[in-house]
Amino acid sequence: MDNVLILFNQPVIFLQVVVDGILFGSILALVAYGMALVWGVMKVINIAQGEFVMLGGYVALKFADAGLSPLWAVPAATVILFCVGWILYWLVVHWVVDKDIFISLLATFGLSIFLQQIVNQIFSADVRTAESGLVSRSFLDDRLVVAEIKVLAFVLAAIVGGILWVFLVRSRLGQAIRATAQNSRAARLMGIDTNHVYAMTFGLNAAICGGAGALVAMTWVIHPYLGLSYLVRSFMIVVVAGLGNLPGVIVAGLGLGAAENFAGFVFGAEYQAAFIFSLLVVILVWRNWRLGRQRRYLK
């Protein structure tokens, strides 16, 4: 209870918790955005989602090791991970995309273990970080501190979200992606090369995650086994927002980040994850109840 009081007595700390949470949430929103895309278009739940983030982080590391500013790694990781995603689609996911969901789950699960071990072999299991060279800005004489890199992550998340939205609505490929998501068979009949659409979607997803990963390496830490925490959170965000609701994914991502930070503040770090998963249950129950009510009206 003391911790709640602090939030009321020290509004600046309250603000700090909200800001940190939302900025962390923007990374989650990006990863979830990619997952929603793949899930909606290909009906594949990509278990290797977190590993793409991790790979993006290692691209940033390579940039830092080479003496370049890791900030350049954000676009570079996007491009490189696009290629990785595209190749992995044709090597693995292509063979399972129209199959039962359990087969694709297994395949991407295998992929995630494979990627973890490869990275572990190449870079070792050490915890790494890349220095962006950006600093933290203080407000209200150091009581509110915001790291510029987190703001950059937030801005980039917004830009990527925007570009993606325009791309899906306006471009030919975007239209093809949406058509495939609605009904892949009909899309094929209309002359859309759905395999091409799938490959591009999977690549796009990897690219988004890669960019997010480069930001993670500059803001937090990376190591070969960090994928899982990004996977479960992005999965949860997509479930909460609902498939095909991309603006919802962004909002849910930011909200989840803030909620998690609050839970950590009030209940302690050990209950952070427990809290958000309880929240998931509550949201699902509530949604079910609401849908049930709607059904009654239809009667």
């Binding site: 602090i6 949470g21 960090l226 899982l228 990004y230 930070n261 950590g264 302690g268 952070q272």
Partner: peptide, 22 residues
Amino acid sequence: IDDKLPPEINDMSATLAKVKAL
């Protein structure tokens, strides 16, 4: 403050915000 960090933790900002406050 007596927080138990979960093994999969990737962000400590909640705990550190508490440190700032207390």
